[in-house]
Structure formats: structure tokens, C-alpha cells
């Protein structure tokens, strides 16, 4: 079955203003979504969140500090799922809890080596 990566892009600012109560609720709904996916098998890897900082290496050897894009476009986390096709993967992404930001749905190329 095709594999997909969900890239979660969201702003850092809104995260800073969230209250403990909202964070706990968010943790509960995301936890439920993740454990449902793992038990059902469509969630291949719950992935991880990415630290906001980082470096950018140009091929001429120049290294600069991140961020790499507008902060609202920063990738904040990812996970891996499997689905029939892009449409089914998009439907799956729709079932994710809405905690702000956007989700990018990308299919792994999965080229055969034979």
C-alpha cells in the first residue's frame, strides 16, 4: 500500500500563547488519534516534532541559521501513514485533530529497485 508523510506546518507564535488547559486537551485528542492509528495499523510511525531552530547549508559551503521560511510555513512535526491513494490519505489527514496550522500530504515515491 502507498505510504504518505504528513508534514505539519504551523506558527510558533500561537503555540506560545496556548494555555495549560488547551495544551492538555490537545495532548489528549492527539494521543487518541495516534493510538487509534497505531492499533488500526494505518499509522506507520507517529513521527516526531521538530525543534524550531537549525542551520541552512548552501552548496557553496555557507552556513546560516534557520528559520528557512516564513514562520507560519515552518515544518513543526511529521508522521507516516499508509493509505489506498492520495484521496484516502487526504481523508485521513482530515481526521487529525485541528490544533491550528496546515497539513501537507506527500506520497513517498517508493520506486522499485527491481
Amino acid at each position: 500500500m502507498p505510504k504518505f508523510m504528513f508534514l505539519q506546518r504551523s506558527g510558533e507564535e500561537c503555540a506560545k500563547e496556548r494555555s495549560p488547559k488547551e495544551m492538555q486537551q490537545s495532548m489528549q485528542v492527539w494521543g487518541a488519534w495516534m493510538s487509534e492509528g497505531l492499533s488500526a495499523g494505518w499509522l506507520l510511525d507517529p513521527g516526531d516534532a521538530l525543534q524550531p531552530g537549525g542551520k541552512v547549508l548552501q552548496r557553496d559551503g555557507t552556513v546560516t541559521d534557520g528559520p528557512f521560511a516564513e514562520s507560519k510555513e515552518l515544518v513543526g512535526g511529521y508522521c507516516m501513514i499508509e493509505a489506498e491513494d492520495l484521496e484516502a490519505a487526504t481523508a485521513r489527514a482530515l481526521s487529525m485533530p485541528d490544533t491550528g496550522g496546515v497539513v501537507e500530504i506527500r506520497q513517498l515515491a517508493g520506486h522499485s529497485m527491481e
Partner: peptide
């Protein structure tokens, strides 16, 4: 707390 949300929702409390 944010780190807890990210880690615990993926790997449990």
C-alpha cells in the same frame, strides 16, 4: 508543557 504535548501524544504519558 509544549514538549510534553508533542512527546506524550506520540509515545504515551
Amino acid at each position: 508543557l509544549l514538549a510534553a504535548v508533542q512527546a506524550w501524544s506520540r509515545r504515551g504519558v
